[in-house]
Write a protein that binds this DNA or RNA. Structure first.
Lengths: 187, 187
DNA sequence: GTCTATAATTTGATAGAC
DNA sequence: GTCTATCAAATTATAGAC
């Protein structure tokens, strides 16, 4: 999942969102401040407010941009020339790459864990992220007619999200590898 | 896992920790403020600083108190009169109760997701929580001699943590039930 | 679109009286 | 152990010039 894609945002707004996402994935919604973002982008905080008036606007935009990138990165869920394993392996790969390349876990895992304290527009965007990923995974699991599976989309997504938290908190990447292996074995 | 147990803290300090934990589980480390805690407890913020000078002291104490409660609640991991299923079901039950009773997920799931932004003493306490829960689960899986399992402690803990996030973020409790079912089936 | 300037609030933290 | 008083810094947000 590259960071330079078909985003609806360009220029300064896009730069702001990149910086904001990195901070939110590291420390949650409260870990980003308008001033910090501005400094990193090389502008003033008032200019950040021009692009995203309220912090909830910024948060929702970050989540929606992230959602589009993930859905784009996992690709088609119903390509009949692919096995279920190939498809799920691509979902796993998106998260594995994020952890290995950037040392960051899923944005919506971090925000999802603090849902109860998020502004409504942000919490709703996080909710939609999971609905979309669950829908993708459901399709990925069922589109191959003669390949019955023991696992549900929810179980796969749960497993992946939790594995990222555990790997990050214990600094042991093999918790992620182990989860990935278990998921693929269960297909 | 009742909230009124063998804590090393009593009186005002204990009350402070209870309020702080509730806020941290809802919104992360930054979601608690000395003033908010003080107001809820019925004292002034300077008094909170008396018990926990720095915020990192408060955070570490909250995590350590929580860890002791969880480890106490899951009970013995190596009782030879119990099946592996019975033991793991008790671990699941601790988290199910937390979600149903309080609507809150695991404290160390919330904090673990924002590990990169936590003060070192807090991040280390979270790390130790997971090491202890993993050790408990490992014992629970292996102590029954003739019951081989397909699942590792890491996979079980990952699965549970992720299921809580997904259930909370989508407001669909069945993601947790489904994970619990999958775990027990995998034993 | 970006800036300066500033407001209003909140935050973690400390000194010292009781 | 709790209080009053206070501080310095950070936060979100806005008004208005360029």
């Amino acid at each position: 999942m590259e960071n330079s894609e078909q985003s609806a945002f360009t220029g300064t707004a896009e730069e702001i969102l990149q910086v904001a996402e990195r901070h939110m994935r590291a420390g949650g919604f409260d870990a980003v401040s308008f001033r910090d973002i501005a400094t990193e982008v090389g502008i003033k905080s008032a200019s950040v407010h021009y692009h995203f008036p309220q912090k909830s606007d910024l948060g929702a935009a970050v989540v929606q941009r992230y959602t589009a990138r993930v859905i784009n990165a996992v690709g088609a869920a119903d390509n009949p020339r692919e096995t279920v394993t190939t498809r799920i392996d691509r979902l796993i790969g998106v998260y594995r790459a994020a952890m290995l390349d950037d040392g960051l876990i899923c944005l919506c895992c971090v925000l999802g864990a603090e849902t109860l304290d998020l502004p409504d527009p942000v919490a709703e965007s996080v909710n939609r992220f999971f609905e979309q990923v669950l829908a993708w995974t459901t399709t990925a699991l069922t589109a191959a007619p003669a390949e019955p599976t023991n696992t549900s989309a929810g179980q796969i997504v749960s497993n992946l999200q939790g594995a990222m938290v555990l790997a990050l908190a214990t600094k042991q990447q093999d918790h992620f590898s182990s989860a990935a292996e278990g998921i693929l074995k269960s297909l």
